[in-house]
């Protein structure tokens, strides 16, 4: 081998080395760049992550607020629903009250209408009987009128028993006589297991024209389905006390005047014949 050859190979190797070295330097440069890029990405990612979790937090807070709002709205709506329900219950109660009042007024209207629908004494007694049976719901009772001559109460109409069964009662005598004397209504305290007693009935209603008692309604037995009196019954008794009395009284007067009139007519006929 010549010296020339040695030189050539040495410079080639140097060249090669330089190239290798340059490649190494380039590579290192690339690595550094890549490193820089990665660090930048990392920072970016971290930033994103940070801002990302912030956004999540904000969303959560927003949602929580919304839930609270909705909860509040729900409570309000439930409250309103409860108030509406309460109002409905009030209306229902009021409706029942009005229906009861309506029923009561219907009964009173019909009772007074019927009582004054006739001037015939027997028909008036029939109407009173019907009111006591149908509107009050009694099964056994008597209408007793005061006989002015004997000062005794005498049964003139009965339901569920015979007239002859009812004893005459003197004014002031016993419970019935006392009520006729004072003009006060009587209602028994305990209706259970009651057995008919002419001197101790369930109810005594004096028939009054102003303060003057002309008779009494005496009740001994109510219908099976009627365990006690309702408000409407007390109103009906009050109405009967006054209106039945005037109806009886005026029908009696009317029949008397009719009788007198026919007697007079008879005389006139006799005289003019």
């Amino acid at each position: 081998m010549s010296e020339q050859d040695d030189d050539k190979s040495a410079s080639r190797r140097a060249e090669e080395f330089l190239q290798v070295f340059k490649r190494g330097a380039d590579f290192t440069q690339d690595l550094l760049k890549e490193n820089e890029r990665l660090r930048f990405s990392l920072l970016q990612l971290e930033g994103q992550l940070k801002s990302g979790s912030n956004a999540d937090n904000e969303e959560t807070i927003r949602m929580r607020k919304r839930i609270e709002e909705l909860e509040q709205q729900k409570e309000e709506i439930l409250g309103r629903a409860r108030r509406v329900e309460e109002e409905n219950a009030d209306f229902a109660n009021r409706y029942v009250e009005i229906e009861n009042e309506n029923n009561m007024l219907a009964n009173l209207y019909i009772a007074s209408y019927q009582l004054h629908s006739t001037l015939d004494f027997r028909e008036v007694l029939q109407v009173i009987t019907e009111i006591i049976i149908n509107l009050i719901g009694a099964e056994e009772f008597a209408i007793m009128l005061l006989d002015e001559k004997t000062n005794k109460l005498q049964a003139v109409m009965t339901e569920g028993l015979e007239i002859s069964e009812v004893p005459a009662i003197a004014i002031g005598d016993g419970l019935v006589g006392q009520m006729a004397k004072t003009g006060e209504n009587y209602f028994i305290d305990q209706m259970d297991n009651y057995e008919r007693d002419f001197h101790h009935p369930l109810v005594v209603i004096p028939l009054k024209i102003k303060e003057r008692v002309i008779g009494v309604i005496v009740i001994y037995k109510l219908l099976v389905q009627k365990p006690k009196f309702a408000e409407v019954d007390y109103e009906l008794f009050t109405l009967l006390a006054g209106h039945a009395a005037t109806a009886i009284f005026s029908s009696k007067l009317y029949s008397e005047s009719e009788r007198k009139l026919s007697t007079i007519q008879g005389f006139i006929d006799l005289l003019t014949k």
Binding site: N102, I136, L223, V224, Q225
Partner: peptide
């Protein structure tokens, strides 16, 4: 009907009545 639990009521239903109301009756 007048009675609360009478035979009349049962007989009327058996004969073909659809319903009954008992005295003293309420407008309702």
């Amino acid at each position: 009907t007048t009675e609360g639990a009478s035979e009349d009521k049962e007989r009327a239903i058996a004969l073909g009545a659809n319903a009954y109301i008992t005295k003293p009756i309420q407008t309702t």
